[in-house]
């Protein structure tokens, strides 16, 4: 199984390269996935290599994109939550959100969740139905075998029953 998730060295390097390119071409807007294709044609600019780029360590800022992190205390619905290490921008976003939506909190009694049964995989559901059918129509081979005797007895098989119509077998 391929290692997913955490970026590979290659991907991280590409990220840095991309950052670097953008900084080298300040006037141009960054390439986004959305617009990149539309603008493909104009890509052939004669890019000269800068021996002394204005900011050699352009990617320095990558690791610390935000100004810093701090504990965030949220008062919400009459309770308090403290979250450690929240980046400033995230906190700002949360506050903006909280401000933008001041509808009163739902009364608790509306919360009563209806009971939801754990769902079963469809293929297994079908199998269990067939199994049930088989157990009830045959001489219950499964339960008998389960009783204890590991040594199967032929007598169990007196009345073999096909639980599927066998018409197609003759094809």
């Amino acid at each position: 199984m391929a290692a997913a998730g955490s970026s590979s060295r290659f991907a991280v390097t590409c990220g840095l390269l991309s950052q670097y390119m953008r900084e080298r071409q300040q006037p141009q807007p960054p390439v986004t996935v959305l617009e990149a294709v539309a603008e493909e044609e104009e890509e052939e600019d004669a890019r000269t290599m800068q021996l002394f780029p204005p900011r050699a360590a352009a990617a320095d800022g990558v690791a610390t994109p935000s100004a810093g992190t701090a504990p965030l205390t949220i008062f919400y619905d009459g309770r308090m939550v403290v979250v450690d290490d929240v980046p400033a921008e995230k906190a700002a976003e949360l506050m903006r959100l909280a401000g933008s939506a001041c509808s009163p909190p739902q009364p608790a009694h509306a919360a009563a969740l209806p009971e939801m049964p754990i769902a079963r995989k469809a293929s297994l559901q079908r199998f269990l139905q067939k199994r049930k059918h088989r157990i009830t129509t045959t001489s219950e081979p499964y339960k008998k075998a389960a009783v204890a005797s590991p040594a199967p007895e032929k007598s169990f098989a007196v009345a073999p029953v096909k639980d599927e119509p066998a018409t197609w077998l003759g094809l």
Partner: peptide, 12 residues
């Protein structure tokens, strides 16, 4: 994921 990262380096 590597491909995705590479595609974002530059237009080329």
């Amino acid at each position: 994921r590597d491909r995705e990262a590479a595609s974002r380096v530059c237009r080329r």
